[in-house]
Design a protein around this nucleic acid. Structure first.
Lengths: 150, 150
DNA sequence: TTGATACTGAGACTTAGTCTCATATTCAAG
DNA sequence: CTTGAATATGAGACTAAGTCTCAGTATCAA
């Protein structure tokens, strides 16, 4: 099976782009990163390897375009990405208090979604399905120590 | 039935906040706006009425909190809001080419979503469900004049 | 009417991201 | 190997969207 690195090489070659050291650093770091990350975290991680902010963002765009990475959440002006390798398609629950992200898979939702697109003659490229609320732990916390009244 | 203005007044009173002229201007403009808008459009519209950017954003937060407005889409770092009055809950298809927004209602998706939350013991507050792709018109346009090869 | 409380605009500040440009790397052809 | 045209790079200027501060102003309950 094709490794992410091989896939990236193929993608670059096919677009007549070059396989450079900074690009490889971004690839490695992005795929090794904790499962969900924001661009600026990547920028911070890569400063150690002397990769500039500009290059991180430029490479991020390539990884997105090549399908190795996916933007999965966007809240409050923050974009969150995750590597595509391995896991089946899924969506996310986002805890508004602790930021925890829970992944869930639901083929029936996907199927209904596709039916909607067919109905509108809409060619789907991607989708963002995120549910915001409070995870079990934070619900409990709030029950014990509710925000004190103004 | 309660008008948006009455709802807003009640909301403010209950929080010991004041009903001011700038706030009313923001309310009116936000509700009268084209169905979907970005904060900066509101800022521009309200400059004529001498309402500052800071006040627009501050009031936007209140309108969101009071439920009169809802954030419905977030793409590319742009937040899009819409007034809540009138329409039943719905989600959105967003055309990546022309920016067109199509609304769709699908109770079965909503039901499945709630089931997911129950399974994870997650207290849902809101959700963002947007499908990105190409609308009928833009698909046709691209078929006629495809992007020329590099 | 009044004064405590809350609100306001101006503009400084922040954060995330993009752009430019002079210099450095890559890689296909020789 | 070399080489050189094409592409990539880092530094840092720039932008856009939003937040914050603060001195002066408006609101509203008593």
């Amino acid at each position: 099976m094709e490794t992410p690195r091989q896939a990236f090489e193929a993608f670059l070659r096919q677009k007549h782009l070059k396989l450079t050291q900074p690009r490889l650093s971004v690839l490695d770091t992005a795929l090794a990163a904790r499962r969900h990350f924001e661009p600026e975290e990547l920028v911070a991680d890569l400063r150690a390897k002397a990769v500039s902010r500009a290059t991180v963002y430029r490479t991020l765009a390539l990884l997105l375009e090549s399908g190795l990475l996916k933007e999965v959440i966007e809240t409050n002006g923050h974009r969150i990405y995750e590597p595509m390798h391995g896991l089946p398609h899924h969506d996310h629950l986002v805890c508004l208090e602790c930021g925890k992200i829970i992944e869930f898979v639901n083929p029936r939702i996907e199927a209904l979604q596709e039916a909607v697109c067919r109905r509108f003659d809409f060619r789907i490229v991607s989708h963002l399905h995120q549910i915001m609320g409070y995870c079990r732990k934070c619900q409990r916390k709030n029950a014990v120590a509710p925000r004190r009244p103004a």
